[in-house]
Computed example of a mutant assay.
Amino acid sequence: MEKHVVAVKTVEERTDLSTGIVYRKRIATCQNVIPHFLRQISVLKVSEVYLEEESWLNMQERIMSMKTQCLTWTQYATLKEESVFRESLENPNWTEFIQKGKVSIKGAGLLNCFLEVFAQTFLNQGVKKGISIMEKLLQEQFGSPFL
Rank of each mutant, 00 (worst) to 15 (best):
M1G: 11
M1R: 04
H4Q: 11
V5A: 03
K9Q: 11
K9Y: 02
T10K: 04
V11R: 05
E12N: 13
E12W: 06
E13G: 09
R14M: 10
D16M: 04
S18W: 12
T19Y: 10
V22L: 15
V22H: 15
Y23F: 15
R24W: 01
R26G: 00
T29L: 00
C30Q: 01
Q31V: 03
Q31C: 05
H36K: 12
F37N: 10
Q40N: 07
I41D: 09
I41P: 08
S42T: 09
S42G: 08
S42H: 14
K45H: 14
Y50V: 00
Y50R: 03
E52G: 00
S55G: 04
W56D: 08
N58S: 13
M59E: 12
Q60I: 03
R62E: 11
R62M: 07
S65L: 11
K67Q: 11
W73C: 04
T74W: 01
E81C: 12
E81S: 13
E82H: 15
E87I: 11
N91I: 06
P92F: 02
N93H: 13
N93Q: 14
N93W: 09
E96P: 05
K100P: 01
V103F: 02
S104N: 02
I105W: 08
I105G: 00
I105S: 00
G107R: 01
G107D: 06
L110I: 08
L115K: 02
E116V: 01
F118H: 06
Q120T: 11
T121C: 00
N124M: 02
S132T: 15
S132D: 15
E135G: 05
L138M: 10
E140F: 07
Q141L: 05
F142N: 08
S144W: 09
P145T: 10
L147E: 12
L147A: 07
